[in-house]
Design a protein around this nucleic acid. Structure first.
Length: 463
RNA sequence: GGCGCUGUAGCAAAGUGGUAAUGCAGUGGACUGCAACUCCGCCAUCGUCGGUUCGAUUCCGACCAGCGCCUCCA
């Protein structure tokens, strides 16, 4: 039983070999909390939650950390814009994030470090970089430029390893305005000065705040170690974010690798276009949850391989919902069984092969369908295997009866009303008044309730 | 200019050097008072053109069409 993962660093799928099989360490870049998160933020959360679940099925202990970025210029801007204290904003949106992620059935990471709780660690790392000649404080001659500390990219010979970038070759097409205080165009900020009305912390270079990349490096070192097994995030973070994290950590830790495996998820587009503010096509998880169960969103995300791009659309969501209806329909009324993971099953094997969730999901469907048709011990065994696979995918965690009967969106009828109507229809059928029976059924259908007759009676579900 | 990705049925999405999983939709049939559910069946030669090979959707090359990063970004 081997786990293979695609490693962005080597650009190939390779056998996952942990540093310490008794303690797996994994870090995923979390959100900057200045707004509700959109579906694109949900993808890494769901994907790496699944990776976490797979790892836990293989190894006895996995430490998964996902940070909250609660100090950032975007947050400061929002704070100024709305004249609301920055802490109020970060509290509100970090809580909203946790709620959304729970709706997507992601497990709570073992560590949720906040950037602002790690200022001393960050300062310490900057100091180490300065001491080792990998960083420099800007000249204090010019008052405006004073107080910056920059990472010196030329001080690191193998800079660019992750993104395979050669800074010289990029200059031709790059439109980066180079700040005057930089010694080299590619140098990036470790520490920047804060004005009096900006949040800041005292440091050897004056009152200021950390640069974007620094927190991850500092928090990884503190909570997980100098070198971790897996570092994950969205594909767009490869450069510059992760590249710079590597530079900081590696140089601060005397050349040790920051992570052995780098995993990056592909983007989510909306109706064929990238989500962007100018297009106004952001899909907030919070809004989508008003129309779809969280499980539908999770299912959609896992129905494509995590490295490929995925196009979100209403059609995709509706289709996923119908599929889940079918699957829950298969197991509705069957006694649930304690989960037993079939480690030689196709679904689990697919997950071990670079987290191939689409194949695992098709196996989930196959098992549910087979359970629907089986009887007795065979059925129990299929249900146990189904539960085992479903647990790793974080799907099918609801009671099927609930899945079908909990009101969806704008449903008007209560369960009691529906069952009353079903009784009335039953009577009409017994009286062989089919016209009336059909009329009741149609009325219910118009109200979003589908009836399913069987020898045992009438079952209903919301559609 | 540099780095990189994608192109498989109406939609979604796996996959393999030996004629392509799966889901949704559609469709034929069974079941049903009629439906719904369910069951049985049908529905693609894998962007184009070359090359390698006994054989390619799968390898190589070119081309076409999309797209991402290089600036905040999941």
């Amino acid at each position: 039983m081997e786990l293979k993962l695609y490693n962005s660093l080597t650009r190939q799928k390779q056998l996952f070999e942990p540093i310490d099989a008794k303690r797996i360490t994994m870090y995923a870049c979390g959100p900057t909390v200045y707004n509700f998160v959109h579906i694109g933020n949900a993808r890494p959360a769901v994907v790496f939650d699944t990776v976490y679940r797979v790892l836990r099925s293989v190894y006895p202990k996995v430490i998964y950390a996902r940070n909250i970025t609660d100090i950032d210029d975007k947050i400061i801007n929002k704070s100024n814009e709305l004249s609301i204290d920055i802490n109020v904003i970060t509290k509100k949106y970090s809580e909203a994030y946790f709620d959304d992620m729970q709706a997507l059935n992601t497990l709570t990471p073992d560590e949720t470090p906040y950037a602002t709780d790690h200022i001393p660690e960050m300062i310490e790392m900057v100091q180490a970089l300065v001491d080792k000649g990998h960083a420099y404080a800007t000249d204090s001659q010019n008052e405006a430029d004073k107080g910056h500390v920059l990472f010196s990219v030329p001080s690191m010979p193998n800079y660019g390893e992750l993104s395979k970038r050669n800074l010289e070759e990029q200059e031709a097409g790059a439109r980066v305005e180079v700040a005057g205080y930089k010694q080299y165009a590619g140098d990036f900020v470790l520490w920047k000065p804060s004005t009096d009305n900006e949040p800041g912390w005292d440091s050897p270079w004056g009152r200021g705040r950390p640069g974007w990349h620094l927190e991850c490096s500092a928090m990884i070192k503190k909570h997980l170690g100098d070198t971790i097994d897996i570092h994950a995030g969205g594909h767009d973070l490869v450069f510059p974010h992760h590249e710079n994290e590597i530079a900081q950590s590696s140089c601060a830790n005397d050349g040790k690798a920051l992570a052995n495996f780098w995993m990056h998820n592909g983007f989510i587009n909306i109706d064929g276009e990238k989500m962007s503010k100018s297009l106004g096509n952001f899909r907030l998880v919070n809004d989508l949850l008003k129309q779809y169960p969280g499980e539908v969103l999770r299912y959609v995300i896992l129905s494509a391989h995590y490295r490929s791009e995925q196009n979100f659309s209403k059609e995709l969501l509706d289709s996923a919902w119908r599929t889940l209806d079918t699957v829950y329909g298969f197991i509705r009324g069957i006694d649930p069984q304690a989960a037993i993971l079939n480690r030689t099953g196709e679904g689990y094997k697919a997950l071990l092969d670079d987290i191939n969730t689409p194949v695992a999901i098709s196996e989930l469907y196959r098992l549910a369908k087979a359970a629907n048709q089986a009887q007795g011990a065979e059925q129990q065994s299929l249900m146990a295997e189904l539960a085992g696979l479903a647990d790793i995918l974080g799907l099918l965690q609801q009671d099927p009866e609930q899945w079908f009967t909990v009101a969806r969106g704008d449903d008007q009828l209560t369960t009691e009303q529906i069952e009353e109507q079903i009784q009335a229809r039953q009577q009409a059928k017994q009286d062989r008044d089919f016209a009336k029976a059909d009329q009741i059924r149609q009325q219910l259908l118009d109200a979003g309730v589908v009836l399913e007759d069987s020898r045992e009676g009438t079952q209903w579900r919301r559609a």
